[in-house]
């Protein structure tokens, strides 16, 4: 069963005031994930096997 976007959900998606706060939230969240660092995988796993 495919989900549908309800009228209320659509209102929230397109309401500029609600979306302004979502924009701030999204910007910070994306920044946290992207600028949150990156690294290797091999050493971490070698350590975990020790």
């Amino acid at each position: 069963m495919i989900q549908r976007i309800s009228t209320y959900q659509r209102f929230k998606m397109m309401n500029p005031i609600i979306q302004f706060f979502r924009f701030i939230y999204l910007s910070l969240k994306v920044l946290t994930i992207v600028a949150g660092g990156h690294g290797g995988t091999r050493k971490v796993h070698q350590d975990s096997h020790k």
Binding site: M13, M14, K29, I33, V34, H38, G39, T41, R42
Partner: peptide, 30 residues
């Protein structure tokens, strides 16, 4: 180091252009 197995990415997919009528699908994956 930066393996794609230890790196997040954001895909901000446009779903329509317009300052008041536009839309986007924001997906991040980590």
């Amino acid at each position: 180091k930066g393996s794609m197995g230890n790196m997040g990415a954001a895909c901000i997919a446009s779903a329509g252009f317009g300052l008041t009528q536009g839309s986007g699908i924001s997906i991040t994956t980590y």
